[in-house]
Nucleic acid binder design. Structure first.
Lengths: 221, 221
DNA sequence: ACGCCATTGACCACACTGGTCATTTCATGC
DNA sequence: GCATGAAATGACCAGTGTGGTCAATGGCGT
């Protein structure tokens, strides 16, 4: 006689492959609608009714594509991670050793990601605060490493010898970071007033250089 | 014969005065619990059940103190505005013309406000994003002017002649602002690990000066 | 004209909502 | 120790919104 004990349930968050058969535009519509709702309300209070309304599909379809709310959420996490890995981290040019130029290029990439998936960054950032026990552990397991890898790769091979003597480089980078986020927020609020993302990008870059110059003046020799 | 038309309903958001008879500590407990819930979920989705649980009072009491959810919300807005006016704006020393010193003092005041009402700033800031038609107009009417007055008074009588030639003062102030917010967030996350707010305040001030010096080095002649 | 499967939305049991109010608890004066 | 009024309670209510289901429908390829 054997006693079998299920110590750990196997994760069976298999996405119903029907979803992947959809047209890319429709997939994006659903993804963006769902992310938007989860960002606004968190896992528990996000409403699947709101998601299907925004995505212009029926309730039945949503639960055809995904087994349940949790599977949808986990899929979105995976999707967000994939986007950031593929379209941000992998495109970082490690030969660019100047911190400001590196940051500038990253900002440019973020802008492009934003135009396709407007809330991925917000989503992953807010997911870390998620408290619902149903998804909390999975998030920690999946999202934390992405941020760790991010802060590592972003500053890899940067030439710190350009910095003034005596300056606290860590604090300088924090200031740069906060300024980027602040400027990024401001930019995103303006982005909707433009039709052409390229045109916006140009102006955006030009304005960022002005902020950049002010900080460079302080940080560099 | 006269025809009387009610063009505009008189605002009758009179707070049931029972609330003001309570012991100050109990009042603060209720205020903080309610603010916390409204910050987390917005007006519509905030739960009065959660508020009474957190405030350790009964449902009946809450609706004895306040006629309804909306009155509670409006009271909290008024309260928040009062706190900021009384404990922040009125304490700004207009004889201090150095921008960095002025900012430093304001940070100090904010720290004290935070220790008594941990979420007032978040509350008023997030209230502006509120979309519920039941309170949207009232907020715009009450909160917007506070922020306008704030940005005006904070920079009143500042000596801009200390700034380097050619620097874009507006952008410099934006950077300073973003850095303050970033540092403030970081500080608040650490504040709970300290018992004594005075001790924390000292360390906080000392660390802020390091950031401050970096920016001063860039902004000033 | 048929078969097949993606799509639909009415429907379900249930959780939770803002608000009420009969009842209990408490503080006070005697 | 008792009477009295005020303050506090929480079971209760009708209504709304929830995640998820599934019989019915629609539309496309042949």
């Amino acid at each position: 006689m054997t006693i079998s004990v299920k110590l750990q349930r196997k994760e069976t968050t298999t996405i119903n492959s029907n979803f992947h058969k959809l047209k890319p535009e429709k997939k994006e519509l659903i993804i963006n609608a769902a992310i938007k709702e989860f960002v606004r309300n968190g896992f528990d209070k996000a409403s699947t009714n709101e998601i299907v309304k925004e995505a212009k599909i029926s309730k039945g379809s949503l639960f055809n594509y995904f087994n349940n709310k949790k599977d949808l959420y986990v899929f979105l996490i995976d999707h967000g991670i994939h986007v950031i890995e593929k379209h941000l981290y992998e495109k970082i040019d490690l030969d660019e050793t100047d911190l400001f130029k590196r940051i500038e290029k990253i900002g440019w990439q973020k802008l492009h990601i934003h135009s396709k998936y407007p809330h991925v960054f917000d989503f992953l950032a807010s997911s870390i605060q998620e408290e619902s026990p149903e998804v909390k552990d999975i998030i920690k397991q999946k999202v934390d490493p992405v941020y760790e890898r991010g802060t590592e790769i972003i500053f890899k091979h940067i030439d710190y010898s350009k910095f003034r003597e005596g300056i606290d480089i860590e604090k300088a980078i924090e200031i740069l970071n906060w300024t980027m986020f602040g400027f990024g927020d401001k930019a995103i609020k303006q982005i909707n007033t433009f039709e052409d993302i390229g045109e916006f990008g140009d102006q955006y870059l030009k304005e960022w250089e002005l902020y950049s110059e002010i900080l460079k003046n302080s940080f560099y020799k």
